[in-house]
């Protein structure tokens, strides 16, 4: 399994009168095709770690390497370029652009990347949305969709440029159980069928237990990292 993302002694401290350490000494490796759950109590640094992995935030110390390439010295534009083609983000809330249809929202990353022509973009976006069960909702705007549908559009947008890594911050946190299950199955499909890596922050331990690997954080440090079921069984029981 090739290494997709790795961190080395990553620490993130928020400056201020009283500096706040978000994560500390994080060493981890994410390989291709891994389905990783990041769990931990509130304020343990799960989302902070996710943003560092996604190059949205920069570590105070340590290094994040994407495909073996150090990112610490990269410019904002270079990191943006990696995010554009290499990483897809899914957040707890869909964060779709309200003025654009589902299809247009999915096309936004493609248009920014600009590798294919407009017709191909439309076909590809429609294909992804159809795959996620949104065939009849391509032209609908976010306010015309249900919560679960919006989140699936957000997943489709994350997949738009076919990135090898999907980072999800509590992707089912705002959904009912039925929609949560739908989204989870989609994420599992992304890993198992497409061979992509998915790293998801979640409070849902049942869901985390069904993922391949579990990383548990406490106070910004990794306290356990291993196969999810085994790893989370003490907490589930």
């Amino acid at each position: 399994m090739a290494v997709l993302l790795e961190t080395e002694k990553v620490t993130r401290v928020l400056p201020g009168t009283v500096p706040v350490t978000l994560v500390e000494d994080i060493d981890l490796t994410i390989g291709d095709g891994e389905f990783v759950a990041i769990t931990g109590p509130s304020g343990s640094g799960k989302s902070s770690l996710l943003y560092l992995l996604g190059l949205l935030d920069m570590p105070t110390e340590g290094e994040v390497r994407f495909r073996g390439k150090p990112t610490h010295d990269l410019s904002e534009e270079e990191r943006a370029a990696i995010r554009l083609s290499g990483i897809g983000f899914i957040f707890q809330f869909h964060f779709l652009l309200a003025e654009f249809s589902a299809l247009e929202n999915v096309m936004i990353p493609m248009r920014r990347l600009g590798r294919i022509d407009r017709r191909e973009m439309e076909a590809r976006a429609a294909d992804i949305l159809e795959r996620l069960g949104l065939r009849d909702h391509l032209r609908k705007r976010p306010d015309q969709l249900s919560g679960g549908q919006r989140q699936r559009v957000a997943v489709a947008r994350a997949l738009a440029n076919d990135p090898p890594l999907i980072l999800a911050d509590e992707p089912t946190g705002s959904l009912d159980s039925h929609s949560s299950e739908q989204v989870f199955e989609i994420l599992r499909g992304i890993v198992e069928e497409d061979g992509k890596s998915v790293v998801a922050v979640t409070h849902d331990l049942d869901m985390a237990a069904r993922m391949g690997r579990g990383i548990h954080l406490v106070d910004g440090r990794i306290v356990s990292d291993g196969p999810a079921v085994a790893h989370l069984s003490p907490q589930l029981s």
């Binding site: 943006a80 995010r83 964060f95």
Partner: peptide
């Protein structure tokens, strides 16, 4: 929206 666009890979 700005934050989201940045997360999608938009530059400053």
């Amino acid at each position: 929206d700005i934050a989201i666009l940045k997360s999608l890979g938009f530059r400053q």
